[in-house]
């Protein structure tokens, strides 16, 4: 295989992993899990999302771990991207807050404004 062909094939296999490109994923929940996030409790938040999604039998929403966005004091930080590409940032997340975010945002499409980043920084 020529280099270009090989690259094209690899790229084809990769497309649609992160956003709505993939048909069966309508929403992506990215949990910041660099050292800062994990120290603030991101693992528990990630577990809570997975459990809550499983409990409600939601299969078209994907959780992923990501690195740090730099806003360390707001960790655990969670960013939810919908099909339209719009992103919402939730800050200071806890397993308790996760249940409401799943019920209101993931299921009913209503953003939990009082957990979003704008309540903490300008």
């Amino acid at each position: 295989m020529k280099p270009i062909e090989k690259m094209e094939k690899t790229r084809e296999g990769a497309i649609g992993q992160t956003t709505g490109g993939k048909q069966d994923v309508r929403m992506r929940i990215a949990v910041g899990m660099a050292t800062c996030g994990i120290a603030a409790g991101a693992k528990q938040v990630m577990d809570a999302f997975n459990e809550e999604l499983k409990r409600r039998n939601i299969n078209d929403v994907k959780t992923v771990l990501v690195g740090c966005r730099g806003a360390c004091r707001l960790e655990p930080l969670v960013e939810i991207t919908g099909e339209n590409g719009e992103m919402v940032t939730y800050v200071n997340m806890t397993p308790e807050k996760v249940a409401r975010v799943v019920a209101e945002h993931v299921v009913n499409g209503r953003i939990c404004i009082d957990y979003t980043v704008g309540t903490e920084v300008e």
Binding site: T10, A14, Q17, V66, C68, L77
Partner: peptide, 16 residues
């Protein structure tokens, strides 16, 4: 890409 892609998945890096 920090905080945007999954660092443990090469496909996400390739997509970006």
């Amino acid at each position: 890409n920090c905080g945007i892609i999954n660092p443990e998945d090469i496909n996400e890096y390739i997509e970006h």
